[in-house]
């Protein structure tokens, strides 16, 4: 272990300093232990699920065939959410950093923060009660005109509680974090580069293309990945909005939808007993690993470009 050697102002190491320094370091280590603990305890409680039979796995023969469709649904919902959220977030971020007058920009920033403050369970309520029903005619229309596209094969859901609706709600929920990070980076674009572009006769958009977007590229990527991490793990909105049957399908608008790992846990945990709970914990471990990898990569990209960290 390295000893703490940063300047203390007093040449002699005092007992108080020693105690306090180690106390703070213990707190830091506690965080690492907690993170490791998440992995360890989920593994310990998840292991019994490897011996689980069809009774505990909703008819699936083993853990792999049980978790795989859930992973599919998790990825599908998160990717669609991201496809909606990222362009929208870039637009909102640009409106705050480069388009809106300063006073309006501050207000818009506050509203986006408000979007982040709404609890997920309330998003769930809104998804069931407002968004789903509003989308039913859209799904009907898509199913009757575009049923040759596998995504819109139909038959359209009558409640609107489809994976597509769930993805829209997810998109709204990850929008604030993607917006917050990209707008921060856009606002940091060196003014010199922006002026260089304008002085060459660039329009505002050309200036953004020449100076702002290249500067923020890595930030946009990591913001999108952090958004992906959120979308993968978000539970309640999906659990409430989605009418899930756990199938594997590309059909986004029908009444039979894939489920996600998180939603499946939330929906079935209370009624599950014994090994079935272990199976749910094992699926939670899979979710933890996926989001850990995504977040780890996203943060690695960010920290690579942060000044001072080499």
């Amino acid at each position: 272990m390295s000893t703490v050697t940063t300047g203390t102002g007093s040449p002699k190491r005092r007992l108080g300093d020693l105690v306090f320094a180690n106390l703070t370091r213990a707190a830091g280590l506690t965080i690492l232990i907690a993170l490791a603990g998440v992995g360890i305890f989920l593994t310990v409680e998840g292991i019994p699920a490897f011996g689980a039979g069809p009774d505990d796995l909703k008819g699936h023969s083993n853990l792999l065939t049980y978790v795989a469709p859930l992973v599919f649904g998790t990825l599908l919902a998160a990717v669609i959410a991201l496809l909606i959220a990222v362009p929208l977030a870039l637009g909102v971020a640009l409106s705050i950093s480069h388009y809106a007058p300063r006073r309006i920009a501050a207000g818009v920033g506050y509203l986006v923060d408000l979007l982040a403050a709404v609890p997920s369970v309330v998003y769930g309520l809104w998804g069931i009660a407002v968004l789903g029903p509003k989308l039913v005619p859209v799904y009907k229309w898509l199913a009757s005109h575009f049923d040759w596209i596998p995504f819109f094969a139909g038959p359209a859901s009558n409640t609107g509680r489809t994976i597509f609706t769930a993805s829209i709600v997810l998109a709204l929920m990850v929008l604030p974090i993607v917006t917050a990070i990209t707008r921060e980076i856009f606002a940091q674009t060196p003014r010199l580069n922006e002026e260089a572009a304008l002085a060459l006769g660039a329009t505002r958009w050309e200036m953004i293309r020449l100076a702002v977007l290249p500067y923020g590229r890595s930030g946009i990527v990591s913001a999108a990945m952090l958004g992906l991490g959120r979308a993968l793990g978000e539970t309640m909105a999906v659990a409430m909005v989605l009418s899930a049957s756990g199938v594997v399908t590309w059909n986004l608008i029908s009444a039979t939808n894939p489920s996600t790992i998180a939603a499946n846990i939330a929906l079935t945990f209370a009624d599950a007993t014994g090994t079935a709970r272990n199976a749910l914990i094992a699926s939670g471990l899979v979710l933890f690993l996926i989001t850990f990898v995504v977040n780890f990569s996203a943060r690695a990209i960010v920290s690579r470009y942060e000044p001072g960290s080499k």
Binding site: N193, A196, A197, A199, G201, A202, L210, A211, R217
Partner: peptide, 26 residues
């Protein structure tokens, strides 16, 4: 701004572009 070019206090080439692309940017 195309007719009246400008050079700034501090050099400001586009950081992500090569020398070649910087010259051609405008």
């Amino acid at each position: 701004r195309r007719m009246v070019g400008m050079v700034f206090q501090r050099p400001n080439p586009f950081p992500t572009m090569s020398i070649y692309e910087n010259v051609l940017a405008g």
